[in-house]
Amino acid sequence: MNHRTTDGKKRIGATETSFTIIELLRDHPGATITTLAEETGRSKSTVHNHLQTLRGMGYVVHEDGSYHLGLGFLDLGNAARERWNLYEIAKSEMDDLVSAVGERAQLMVEEQGKGVYIYQTKADAGIQTDSHIGATVALHATAVGKSYLAHLPPEELEPLQKQIDLDGRTDRTLTDWETLETEFETVREQGYAFNDEERLVGMQAVGAPILNDEGEALAAISVSGPTTRMSGEWYRQEVPEMVTQAARVISIRATYS
């Protein structure tokens, strides 16, 4: 069965079912056919057929009556990330940044109106949340996203505004473009953005853009940590200095590599 998206484009039902199963196995490793059938709303026989196809292609494995993602996805993931040479350019600088700050850092690029983390690293004391390499995040509710959006030229920002759902992740999330655009002005002036518990309660972050030689955003990086440690002058002044310096170095390397 074929479906149509809200913009009228066709979607292939069988393909959608396979990827729904894949995403469920990502979120629930070891799921059974019964669980997958309940979650997808498909029959057990339909789910079984999709799983057998994915097993034959090396993307799903069957162990003790349950299913897991196969290692075939590693090759696909690496190929997707290699499209962004920023990963190799930024890695060492971000590792140094984490050593200096003692928290967690991430490198984000934008794709189809969402932020996608293509690299993440953390210190031993860094807090692991639901974010990980490959995770998508809301651009309007993150320091990386806001620093990226603030440095886009109008002809690139305007189409993105139509794709971004300004939903409230917490009661501190900015959910209208007028307020965001006012904040973008501040971000451009100071060179970095804050995330004051706008995505997750108890977590704050500082983000800065990776810019090309015309001052336009290519990507963004951020450092995030718990409010108990990311506070005061350390959070408001010292961490931003380190994050923006790292972003400048990565920007130079990206421009001239």
Results as ranks from 00 to 15, higher is better:
residue 101 V to Y: 06
residue 238 E to H: 11
residue 125 A to R: 13
residue 50 H to R: 12
residue 76 L to R: 08
residue 173 T to G: 10
residue 239 V to P: 04
residue 254 A to E: 01
residue 30 G to C: 01
residue 141 A to N: 04
residue 146 K to Q: 13
residue 152 L to F: 08
residue 181 E to R: 15
residue 230 M to D: 04
residue 185 E to S: 09
residue 47 V to T: 00
residue 82 E to Q: 14
residue 183 E to N: 04
residue 56 G to W: 01
residue 9 K to A: 13
residue 177 W to E: 09
residue 196 D to A: 04
residue 106 Q to T: 15
residue 41 G to F: 02
residue 239 V to Y: 02
residue 180 L to W: 07
residue 3 H to E: 11
residue 63 E to A: 05
residue 92 S to F: 09
residue 197 E to V: 07
residue 172 R to T: 06
residue 3 H to Q: 13
residue 223 V to F: 07
residue 235 Y to T: 00
residue 169 R to L: 14
residue 17 T to D: 12
residue 147 S to L: 09
residue 243 V to P: 03
residue 185 E to N: 07
residue 56 G to I: 01
residue 119 Y to D: 14
residue 7 D to K: 09
residue 89 I to T: 12
residue 98 V to T: 06
residue 148 Y to T: 00
residue 154 P to I: 03
residue 115 G to H: 11
residue 72 G to K: 05
residue 55 R to T: 05
residue 209 P to Q: 02
residue 184 F to A: 05
residue 189 E to K: 13
residue 204 Q to A: 10
residue 192 Y to R: 05
residue 80 A to F: 09
residue 185 E to L: 11
residue 215 G to K: 00
residue 11 R to A: 14
residue 179 T to G: 02
residue 175 T to A: 01
residue 140 H to Y: 08
residue 79 A to F: 11
residue 190 Q to S: 11
residue 164 I to L: 05
residue 86 L to M: 08
residue 207 G to F: 00
residue 200 L to Y: 15
residue 241 E to C: 06
residue 135 A to N: 13
residue 139 L to T: 08
residue 190 Q to T: 14
residue 16 E to W: 07
residue 162 K to L: 06
residue 111 E to R: 12
residue 131 S to F: 10
residue 253 R to H: 08
residue 2 N to I: 12
residue 3 H to I: 11
residue 222 S to R: 00
residue 72 G to H: 04
residue 174 L to M: 13
residue 226 P to H: 08
residue 173 T to A: 10
residue 151 H to Y: 12
residue 225 G to E: 02
residue 231 S to T: 14
residue 197 E to R: 05
residue 225 G to Q: 03
residue 254 A to G: 03
residue 10 K to R: 11
residue 102 G to L: 01
residue 190 Q to V: 15
residue 90 A to R: 00
residue 106 Q to I: 11
residue 140 H to V: 11
residue 255 T to A: 10
residue 84 W to V: 05
residue 199 R to E: 13
residue 103 E to N: 01
residue 167 D to K: 15
